[in-house]
Simulated scan of single mutants.
Amino acid sequence: MKRLKQLFKLGLILLLAVLLCNFLISYKAEHKTFDNIENVPKNKVGLILGAGKTTSNGYVNLYYKYRLEAAFLLWKNNKIDKILISGDNSRKDYDEPSTFKSDLIQLGVPETDIYLDYAGFRTLDSIVRAKKIFGLESMTIISQKFHNERAIYLAENNNIDAIGFNAKDLNGRFGLRTKLREYLARTKAVIDVIINKQPKFLGPTIEIS
Rank of each mutant, 00 (worst) to 15 (best):
K2A: 12
R3G: 10
K5P: 02
K5N: 11
K9L: 14
L10A: 09
G11N: 03
L12Y: 01
L14D: 03
L14R: 01
L16R: 00
V18A: 05
L19N: 00
L20P: 02
N22I: 01
F23W: 03
F23E: 06
I25W: 00
Y27C: 02
Y27Q: 05
Y27S: 08
A29V: 05
A29T: 03
A29Y: 03
E30M: 07
N36S: 09
E38M: 04
E38C: 02
V40K: 00
N43D: 00
N43T: 02
K44E: 04
G46N: 00
L47G: 01
A51Y: 02
G52L: 00
N57L: 08
N57A: 08
G58P: 09
Y59N: 14
Y59K: 14
V60S: 09
Y63N: 02
K65N: 13
R67K: 14
R67Q: 11
R67A: 06
L68Q: 13
E69M: 13
A70R: 06
A71Y: 14
L74C: 05
N78V: 01
D81T: 12
K82S: 12
L84A: 15
L84H: 15
G87M: 14
N89L: 12
S102N: 05
D103W: 07
L104Y: 05
L104H: 03
L107A: 06
L107Q: 08
Y115D: 08
L116G: 05
D117F: 06
Y118D: 05
G120T: 05
F121G: 01
F121Y: 11
R122W: 11
L124R: 11
S126A: 15
I127H: 08
I127F: 10
V128I: 15
K132P: 12
F134D: 15
G135V: 10
L136G: 10
S138N: 14
M139K: 04
M139A: 11
T140K: 05
T140M: 05
S143D: 11
S143R: 07
K145T: 14
F146H: 13
E149H: 09
E149A: 09
E149S: 13
I152R: 07
I152C: 12
Y153C: 13
Y153V: 13
Y153T: 11
E156H: 15
N157V: 03
D161Y: 01
A167D: 07
A167R: 02
N171M: 15
G172I: 06
G175Y: 14
T178S: 15
R181H: 14
E182L: 05
Y183P: 10
A185R: 07
T187N: 06
T187D: 04
T187E: 07
A189V: 04
A189H: 04
V193I: 11
V193H: 07
N196T: 06
K197G: 06
P199R: 10
K200I: 15
G203S: 12
T205D: 10
E207Q: 14
